[in-house]
Nucleic acid binder design. Structure first.
Length: 262
DNA sequence: ATGGTAGAAGATCTA
């Protein structure tokens, strides 16, 4: 069994106490992190090593930054999303884990607001690069997990107030269409398999810091796991752990998990 | 009342 988690931390150094507490409790094998907001040499590698996790990091000053924490051996296969050598933003890290049992990527897809505009154009161009790369990955016919903050609400069921977000870069038809193009290659949206019929907002992965969004359970589902067919065949369960949103100095995202029998 | 929150950087930008 292998449990993979994904979590946008909104600064790993601000969130280190919360992260260490959660790792000790949830004990995932692999953790995909986004929005580190630090350079690679500012990453708290020693503290995580003491908790049993080695780290691969693609850092950047102030913004972005992704990492893969793992208790198992990791071999990095990509430190940037292919397709644009001029793209300096730290948003993609891919690795082969546990000697080839699974390939895993931590990705931080651009937010894209305000839309329309330069940032939205960058988002769509990044998604097109992801579409091309994910097609190449599927051709490998391996178990693959593409996890991270996609900054996409796939449907209105993933938004607490769809009317409010109608023109937002997270919900615009161009964004959703490009996400579906990727899914239609043959990826499974693992967190989307669970019906959202429980407590209000239990399927959301993000709650804004403003306007008492967490207290009202006004959230979004923007963090996703895309599984290749061989990973989907091995899928045992998924979950969203919203408990850390109520802790001191929380991230605005909560961790999501998937367990594979591989 | 053109706000609200959080983080990093640095006197603003991003989300």
């Amino acid at each position: 069994m292998l449990t993979v988690a994904t979590w946008n931390l909104n600064s790993i150094n601000a969130r280190l106490p919360v992260l260490l507490k959660w790792l000790a409790d949830a004990s995932p094998d692999v953790v995909l992190l986004q929005e580190l907001k630090c350079q690679s040499d500012g990453f708290p590698e020693e503290q995580l090593k003491a908790s049993g996790y080695r780290a691969e990091v693609v850092g950047q000053k102030s913004y972005n930054g992704v990492a893969i924490l793992s208790r198992l051996p990791v071999e990095v296969s990509q430190r940037h999303l292919p397709g644009d050598d001029g793209d300096e933003q730290a948003r993609y890290l891919e690795a082969v884990v546990a000697g080839g049992r699974v390939r895993i990527a931590s990705l931080y897809l651009p937010n894209g607001n305000p839309a329309p505009g330069d940032k939205f154009d960058y988002k769509l161009a990044w998604m097109e690069r992801l579409r091309l790369h994910s097609k190449d990955l599927l051709a490998l016919q391996e178990p693959i997990v593409l996890g991270g903050d996609y900054n996409i609400c796939p449907s209105d069921a993933d938004v607490y107030n769809p009317a409010l977000f109608k023109d937002d870069a997270l919900c615009r038809p161009d964004s959703r269409g490009k996400f579906r193009e990727i899914l239609h290659q043959g990826w499974i949206d693992a967190l989307g398999l669970t019906p959202s019929g429980g407590e209000k907002g239990s399927h959301y992965t993000y709650f804004d810091y403003q306007a008492r969004a967490w207290e009202m359970r006004n959230g979004l589902r923007i963090d996703h796991f895309l599984l290749s067919p061989r990973a989907a065949d091995a899928l045992v369960s998924t979950s969203i752990d919203q408990r850390p949103r109520a802790w001191d100095r929380p991230s605005d995202h909560v961790p999501a998990l998937c367990t594979l029998d591989i």
